[in-house]
């Protein structure tokens, strides 16, 4: 009986691994496929008949680093994305705290207004934003990209953080207040550590949106000075060389790597319930 139960548990474990493995393969397949295209000679990619054992080539790898300033694009991407997330957090955390905890006239309207900035098509503000940055002399700079990404993501970063703040027991703040803490102290020492998973979640989503942003980046970055990975990708689709599939695939893979590394590094925070044990459990 006991061994039977043990057996069936082993089987269910096996089944679980099989399902998870299949799902992992399904998710990773495009990435691996991209990588395999990127590491093949160009001629092999455009042959119509299937190739089961591709040959390995670093042509594309050398090309993207030597013929294009890919390192600079990557730097631009990383700087613009991390900069925008920092701007978002600096603005969104106090805004979310105010929306979550204070009562004042028009609070809900302000909250809705913040969200509503996300509701229009980005193209509507493309031209005004172009002129705005031209007038302040920020066109074709990473700073402009930072600001634009931050502006695009600010609304939902605020809302995600706000919803996490609403879940924090009010008692925790009351306790800190009677212990002698002021508003900023409470925010810094109590609230932010307690909603860290929310902050991280919002940051990761903001990063993903930012790295995929194309329209505004193309508009603002008119020379390689401010090109990011997403715009650089577009460079491989035209010109006298035609479509350079293996370079596109490799750049796309490279664009995926920074966010992937960030997510791997902080994934344990993504789901960890840090408020556990705060109140009765």
């Amino acid at each position: 009986m006991a061994s039977q139960r043990k057996n069936s548990r082993g089987e269910s474990l096996l089944l679980r691994y099989a399902i998870l493995g299949a799902w992992a393969l399904f998710c990773l397949a495009p990435v691996l496929w991209f990588l395999s295209i990127g590491l093949r000679p160009r001629t092999e990619i455009i042959t119509p008949q299937p190739i089961y054992w591709p040959s390995f080539s670093l042509d594309a790898w050398h090309m993207i680093w030597e013929d294009w300033p890919m390192a600079k694009y990557l730097r631009n991407s990383v700087a613009a994305i991390f900069g925008s997330v920092i701007i978002d957090l600096v603005l969104a955390i106090p805004a979310a705290y105010s929306l979550a905890r204070y009562t004042y006239r028009g609070r809900d309207d302000i909250g809705f207004y913040i969200l509503s900035t996300r509701m229009m098509a980005p193209a509507i503000v493309a031209i005004p934003i172009f002129f705005l940055f031209r007038n302040v002399g920020l066109l074709d700079t990473v700073w402009a990209l930072m600001l634009v990404y931050a502006a695009i993501n600010l609304s939902f970063v605020t809302w995600i953080i706000r919803s996490y703040m609403l879940d924090i027991p009010k008692e925790l703040e009351d306790a800190a207040r009677t212990d002698g803490a002021g508003d900023l102290r409470i925010l810094w020492e109590i609230i932010i550590p307690a909603i860290l998973p929310g902050i991280i979640t919002a940051s990761v989503i903001a990063m993903i949106f930012a790295i995929n942003e194309f329209l505004f980046t193309l508009l603002i970055a008119s020379t390689p000075k401010a090109y990011t990975m997403s715009v650089a990708l577009a460079n491989f689709t035209g010109g006298s060389d035609g479509l350079i599939y293996n370079a596109i695939a490799l750049v796309a893979f490279l664009a995926f790597v920074p966010v992937f590394l960030v997510v791997v590094a902080i994934q344990k925070h993504l789901s960890r319930g840090l408020t556990m044990g705060a109140v009765k459990g």
Partner: peptide, 11 residues
């Protein structure tokens, strides 16, 4: 003050 739900700082 001591609170009903203890209100210990979880972090």
């Amino acid at each position: 003050m001591v609170f009903q739900g203890y209100a210990l700082y979880p972090n």
